[in-house]
């Protein structure tokens, strides 16, 4: 039996005090991962002494998109992201990713911060944030530090979060100029489905060339990473010279280089190639349409 004491923090300061002073604390935000794992009596909880409920901390809530800078509080739920008009207009791929997560009930409770801290290989929040080159703000009693989302996740279910730290918010520069995005996901059913593969493409175009590009994997690799080969293939290329099929092929090769041949590779290789091809295709079409 997993046994623990439940603590509830009413302010960020209090929460950080508790984290600094007590050992073996698990934080409870939306609870959609933690409570399931506790129910399963997961052995990773053998050592915990406390569950710290942070779900009511106002300091960690809210979406704030300025002209250039964006801040998303870590307790922002997926439902909040979907409902935010600003997100829908400026960052539709984030809303798309949020929509594809779980069910209505889960989206109402699960938080973007929780999704990052849990750091499952199939977590749907990573690829859009890595494409945005977002950073996490990690707070502790001693102050705050920033880390890129990409560096925050170390391995499946492992992050750079220290035991006395809380993920406070996510910050990034809003893309400027003409940018286009695509979010793609394959699951085993239409809802409540864990991603088999997901990815985000975010690209900026200047004149007829790709000025900036980020194609980032989700679920296809143990940790979400940008596809370097695909990005270098696309960067600075004239739109007319881009072959989406080639981009797909490069992505699949890169995935296999990272993961090696696994049980799922015979499926994931063609499926990922197709998703990247589609994302690039979407990007080219949108760019052409807005000419």
């Amino acid at each position: 039996m997993v046994e623990y004491q439940l603590l509830r923090a009413t302010s960020l300061v209090e929460a950080l005090e508790i984290l600094a002073e007590k050992d073996n604390v698990e934080c409870l935000a939306g609870g959609t991962d933690l409570l399931v794992d506790l129910h399963k009596q997961d052995s990773k909880f053998d050592q915990i002494d406390y569950v710290l409920d942070i779900s009511s901390l106002k300091e960690l809530k809210g979406i704030n998109l300025g002209d250039k800078k964006a801040v998303i509080g870590s307790l922002t739920t997926h439902a909040d992201l979907i409902e935010s008009e600003e997100i829908q207009q400026k960052l539709p791929f984030i809303a798309e990713a949020a929509k594809s997560i779980g069910s209505t009930q889960i989206r109402n409770r699960a938080t973007i911060g929780g999704n990052l801290v849990n750091a499952a290989a199939c977590a749907d929040s990573f690829s859009p944030l890595i494409a945005l080159e977002a950073e996490v703000v990690l707070a502790s009693r001693n102050g705050e530090r920033k880390l890129s989302v990409r560096d925050f996740v170390k391995a499946p279910y492992k992050t750079a979060l220290k035991k006395d730290e809380l993920l406070k918010e996510i910050v990034f520069e809003l893309p400027q100029g003409k940018y286009y995005s695509s979010y793609q996901k394959i699951g085993r059913r239409k809802a409540l489905s864990i991603s088999r593969i997901s990815l985000t493409l975010l690209g900026e175009v200047k004149v007829d060339k790709v000025f900036k590009i980020q194609v980032v994997s989700g679920a296809a690799t143990p940790s979400p990473v940008p596809f370097a080969e695909v990005n270098s293939y696309l960067l600075n290329k004239k739109l007319a010279d881009i072959d989406p099929v080639e981009a797909g092929r490069l992505a699949a090769e890169e995935m296999v280089e990272i993961t090696g041949e696994r049980w799922s590779t015979p499926y994931k290789r063609p499926a990922l190639a197709k998703l990247v091809e589609r994302a690039v295709d979407d990007f080219l079409k949108e760019a052409a349409n807005s000419g």
């Binding site: 290989a121 864990i194 088999r196 049980w263 499926y267």
Partner: peptide
């Protein structure tokens, strides 16, 4: 399932984890 439809055979599933 996904695998049978795309590549014509099943693979041992492992889910996300």
């Amino acid at each position: 399932n996904l695998e049978r439809v795309l590549i014509g055979r099943a693979l041992s599933k492992g889910g996300c984890k």
